[in-house]
Amino acid sequence: MSNYSIQSQKLSKLFGRRLIFKDINFLLEEKALFGISGPNGSGKSTLVKIIAGLVASSDGKIIHKNSAGEIIPEKLHNHIGFVSPYIVLYEEFSAWENLKIFAKIRGISLNEERVNNYLVRFLLDERKHDLVKTYSSGMKQRLKFIFALMHSPEVLLFDEPTSNLDEEGKTVVYDIIEEEGKIRIVIIASNEAKDLELCDEVLLLEKFKG
C-alpha cells in the first residue's frame, strides 16, 4: 500500500476573465482509475497540469500526501508520471539516451531490466538506439509511456493517452492502464469513450462551469 492520496479542494481556474472550471472537489486514495471528461476547451489538460503541479490554480488547491505527509511542490515531480501529446522528448538523443538522461536528472539509477521490459512491450526495443527525431508520432507517444513509468511513480497522469497510437499501441496502453490502476492512482483525461470505460469514476468538467 502506497498510502498516497490526492485531494482537490474547491479548485478553480480562470484564464484572464474566462472561467474554465469552478469548485472541483475530489479525493483519490491509494489506487484508483479516475477519468476526466469534457468537450474541447473544457479544461481537461489544464486540470491535469494543475494536479501535476505544472500550472497554478486560480483558487483552491490540490494536496498530494503520502505516508510521510504532504508533498511539497519542489518534490512533486518524483511522484508523478505524465503522458500527454504536448510533452516533447529530446529529439537529438536516442530513446535509450533520453531515458538514461531522465534517470540521472531525477537522481535515480536507471532500472535497465524494467525499462527494457517496457521497450519490448511497447515494441520499441529494436529502435531504442535510434534518434527520437526518426520516430513516428505513434512511436514517440509509446516512448512517453516508458518515460512516465520508468521511475515507478505513485500517480500516473494520462492526458489523451491513445492519441497517435495504432490499434496495437492502444491495446498495450489499455493493458498498462488496467494493471497500474490496481496498484496506484491513474488519472485519465480524454474524450474517447473506450479510454473512459476503464475508469471507476469520471469527472465531467461541463458540470463545473459555475
Binding site: A52, H77, V88, F102
Partner: peptide, 20 residues
C-alpha cells in the same frame, strides 16, 4: 522552442534546472 520545458519540469526541481 522545442517544447521540452514541460518535460524538464516533470523531471527536475526548479533549483536543479537553474543550477544546471
Amino acid at each position: 522552442e522545442r517544447g521540452t520545458s514541460l518535460t524538464l519540469q516533470l523531471i527536475a526541481s526548479p533549483s536543479t534546472v537553474f543550477t544546471g
